[in-house]
Amino acid sequence: MTIKVGDKIPSATLHVMGQDGPEAVTTDELFGGKKVVLFALPGAFTPTCSARHLPGYVEKAEEFKGKGVDSIVCLSVNDAFVMGAWGKDQQVGDKVQMVADGSGQLTESMGLTFDLSDKGLGKRSQRYAMLVDDGVVKVLNIEDAGAFEVSGADTMLKAV
């Protein structure tokens, strides 16, 4: 079943790239007591993700903070090394947290996976964006497969 507005983000352990390698971070640490914009995408370094999705959030980070958003989280079913390298490549700095759901644990528990095995990519995250307030989903915009219309930074800025 797909997560919906009003649901709590499931408990999961994810990873971020730290100074000395991957570091565990829980969903409670990411979302507890905070207003967070979470956006997810099928994969780091992929065309739409690199050219449009992530850059929009980097460019608009200050506008989100001005609207009371504590953090912006980019999630993908990739490992922490890939997410860290992609963040450096995209020059995200501290504007967006690059979070790896390497095993797809959180993505699967939210019902937001899709299977790209026929293209050699395995199970990935659907493209979506959500506003999470103290761990509870307040806004959820899920894209149709292949689309980039409702999960971008401009759309989410209007929803915050």
Rank of each mutant, 00 (worst) to 15 (best):
G152Q: 05
V99N: 10
G152H: 06
V137L: 10
L106A: 11
D115P: 02
V137I: 14
N78A: 07
R52D: 13
M110D: 04
K88N: 04
G56R: 04
V5P: 07
P42V: 14
A24S: 13
Q126L: 09
K34E: 10
K8R: 13
G104E: 05
A12Q: 06
K4G: 08
V137Y: 03
V37G: 10
D7N: 13
C74G: 12
D144Q: 11
E23R: 09
V77M: 06
T113S: 11
A51L: 14
G32F: 12
L131D: 00
M156P: 09
G68D: 07
M17A: 13
I142W: 12
F81I: 01
E29H: 02
A153C: 05
M1N: 14
L30P: 13
V96Y: 04
P55H: 05
Q91A: 11
Q91I: 06
D79R: 00
E59C: 01
Q19W: 00
T2V: 15
V92I: 15
D20A: 14
D154P: 06
G87A: 15
P22R: 01
G104T: 05
E29M: 07
M83Q: 10
Q19E: 15
V16M: 10
T26D: 11
Q91F: 01
G33W: 01
C74R: 02
D134Y: 05
T13W: 00
T46P: 08
T13H: 00
D79G: 10
A153V: 03
L54N: 12
L41W: 14
G32W: 07
A145R: 08
V58D: 03
V137E: 06
L41T: 15
E143L: 03
A24W: 01
A147F: 00
A40T: 13
Q91G: 06
K35H: 03
K4S: 11
E29K: 08
G32P: 08
V137C: 10
K65N: 06
A100R: 01
K8I: 14
Y57Q: 02
D118G: 13
A40P: 08
C49I: 05
P10C: 13
F31R: 11
L54I: 13
Y57A: 00
G135S: 03
V96W: 07
G93Y: 00
Y128W: 14
V136G: 04
G122Y: 00
V69C: 08
D28E: 15
T26L: 03
K65L: 03
M98P: 02
V92F: 02
A61I: 08
L30S: 07
Q97E: 02
I9C: 08
G93R: 03
F39H: 08
P10H: 08
K138P: 05
E63W: 01
F39P: 09
K35N: 12
K123Q: 04
A159L: 15
G146K: 00
Q105N: 01
M130T: 11
T107P: 02
F31K: 13
P42E: 10
A159V: 15
D20N: 09
G84W: 12
V36T: 15
M110C: 15
G87H: 01
A129C: 10
L106H: 06
S50R: 04
L112G: 14
V92R: 00
A61V: 12
V96P: 00
M156F: 11
G102N: 08
Q91S: 09
D154G: 15
D115H: 04
V25S: 08
V82H: 04
I9F: 09
N78D: 13
V5Q: 12
V99A: 07
N78M: 04
D115R: 04
M156A: 11
V25Y: 04
D115C: 09
A153G: 11
